[in-house]
């Protein structure tokens, strides 16, 4: 990025950071939902966008994280923010176990299997599996998060917690995108056979993408549990997965700015047009169909990688 772009992004971020001072509680709460969805969509973007693996059961990993956090918090009184690594780990390991036997499946089959996994997880939660998920009522009485002795309670405080985490995620995922790992995932997405031919262990990278994306969704689940203080299986139904899938596709698969923009559009716009709330999904469906015809690459697609030969020559002196 050049200097102007840095300045623009920086000033937008700064403006956004002071936004709660000018907005009412409801508006801040909407921004918090957008933040959670952005977090989830960024994690799905790693799987669906960067690696090109059709995952439509992302809500299952989100649920794993949220329930791990809620159970650890309500049963063992572990402070909710301390459960972050555990819920990430639980969701990540679960994803690895689930994805291991199916990750080689071709795109649309993987999609169906992940839908199935998402449903099985939801049914298991409703049926109070192992007697610890509270059945259809879910788990309540999750304690408020506490950060350096400060209890986070009001939406304005959650705003900084959630969007702080989003900011960290963006930074880390941008770095990841630039790395050898990120390049391998993109190669895999564009041409699996060629990637394998170039010595990329495709199953290994696919699993890593799945595990990492799921772990991140699990941590988002912790934040969700902390924000709501009550979770139930209905928060993790199939439509959540569909909405997340749509955010990534709409924004542009693999594009972090695109995903952020789409999170604002998909979660924020229905709040602006509340009188048409019933038609929300109808419009989504229509947008998905129309987008695929007129702009299948998404709103803000990635521009691909550019490597300047001149710069490289200067650098190495050859």
């Amino acid at each position: 990025m050049n200097r102007a772009a840095w300045l623009g992004t920086g000033s937008c971020a700064a403006l956004f950071a002071v936004a709660p001072l000018f907005l009412n509680t409801y508006q801040v709460d909407v921004l918090n939902s957008i933040g959670l969805y952005a977090l989830l969509a960024l994690s799905l973007n790693l799987i669906l966008g960067e690696a090109g693996l059709f995952n439509m059961g992302h809500a299952a990993f989100y649920a794993m994280g949220a329930y791990t956090a809620a159970i650890l918090n309500t049963r063992y009184q572990i402070p909710i923010l301390w459960t972050l690594p555990f819920s990430g780990l639980a969701a990540g390991l679960f994803a690895l176990a689930v994805a291991r036997p199916v990750v080689h499946l071709r795109g649309d089959y993987l999609l169906i299997v992940t839908i199935g996994v998402g449903e099985i997880v939801r049914i298991a939660l409703v049926n109070d599996v192992f007697g610890i998920t509270g059945g259809a009522n879910g788990i309540f009485g999750i304690s408020r998060p506490r950060l350096f002795g400060w209890v986070i309670r009001r939406p304005e405080e959650f705003f900084y917690l959630i969007w702080g985490f989003v900011g960290l995620t963006i930074f880390l995922f941008l770095r990841l995108k630039q790395s050898r790992f990120g390049r391998a995932l993109n190669y895999l997405r564009e041409d699996e056979v060629a990637a394998e031919g170039s010595g990329i262990n495709t199953d290994h990278y696919k699993l890593a993408a799945f595990g990492l994306g799921a772990a991140w969704a699990g941590m988002a689940g912790t934040l969700f549990a902390a924000k709501m203080t009550i979770i139930s299986p209905e928060s993790f139904n199939f439509w959540e997965s569909v909405v997340l899938f749509m955010i990534v596709i709409l924004g542009g698969a693999g594009s972090i700015p695109g995903v952020l923009l789409a999170a604002f559009l998909v979660v924020g716009l229905p709040e602006l047009f509340r009188e048409f709330a019933g038609a929300r999904m109808l419009v989504f469906g229509l947008v998905m169909m129309v987008m695929m015809v007129i702009r299948p690459q998404g709103l803000l697609p990635t521009r691909g990688r550019h490597f300047s030969l001149a710069a490289r020559v200067k650098e190495t002196g050859r």
């Binding site: 795109g107 569909v242 899938f245 019933g278 999904m281 989504f284 469906g285 998905m288 015809v293 299948p296």
Partner: peptide, 26 residues
């Protein structure tokens, strides 16, 4: 979308599904 990549058709199919379902609901 007949000449488009697979993902496009899959997404369009999902969109059609959501659209049809919600028309019925409305």
């Amino acid at each position: 979308l007949r000449e488009s990549p697979r993902l496009s058709a899959v997404v369009s199919a999902l969109g059609a599904s959501i659209f049809l379902q919600n028309t019925l609901m409305l």
